[in-house]
Amino acid sequence: MSKSLRILVPVKRVIDYAIKPRINKAGTGVEKTGVKFSMNPFDDIAVEEAVRLREKHKNLVESVHAVSIGPAKAQDILRTALAKGADTCTLIDAKEAELEPLAVAKVLKRVVEAQNANLVILGKQSIDDDCNNTGQMLAGLLNWPQATNAAKIELDAARGRVQVTREVDGGEEIVSAALPMVVTTDLRLNTPRYATLPNLMKAKKKPMEKLTLADFGDVDTQARLQTLKVEEPATRSAGVKVGSVDELVEKLKAAKAI
């Protein structure tokens, strides 16, 4: 079988998962200056999966292309994706605009068409807006099948189908679909590799196409939702440490918790 799989992996630059976000002084959003940013963890898994698919099916995967829509600094995470094994990438500079998933999906649809991709692997959600929207929206716009929350992806080259084990509320379910399709990754799909220094050096030589949001001027990327305010959730009042199991049971009874 000829090389027929062209994988597109959208990646997002987000505040590092280990950092507790703080509201900015203006109270309009989250403080972003001086904060560590990284690749969205679910996207890291998506990149890893694309690279593993190629390692496993050398004669099937033609290309792995990464794309990011965000500030100019998003090129850092694209370099990371290249270092982990993506061949080429596209940076779509949106400056400081934070696009909603619908807008991102519309732009991604264009990228899918431009790259002639037939398998899009995205993270199931970004850990900043926690929407869990973009993959489903992209699939809808393309009229492609979708398999979200993937815990396992299997290619059946002979039938041109992809079988995905999905994490659902009560356990897991399996769906299969014909290419082209959209898959979103859950945490248990794989463990992403580290980008080694030599690979990071090599990644600098890999091609990065640079576009701006203006290149998608005919795509409606206007925000549909207005954020009226952001606030920190009510903090829990400090609890007490008890010295023994007896004391714990006593306190729980007093609090009518048991």
Binding site: D130, G135, Q136, G140, Q146, V168
Partner: peptide, 23 residues
């Protein structure tokens, strides 16, 4: 916001050209 709800709603949003409000 169940596994099925999260799977269906954004797709509906895309087809109606509406951004959902999630969770």
């Amino acid at each position: 916001s169940s596994a099925s709800g999260k799977n269906v709603l954004p797709r509906v949003g895309a087809l109606l050209d509406l951004q959902p409000i999630c969770d």
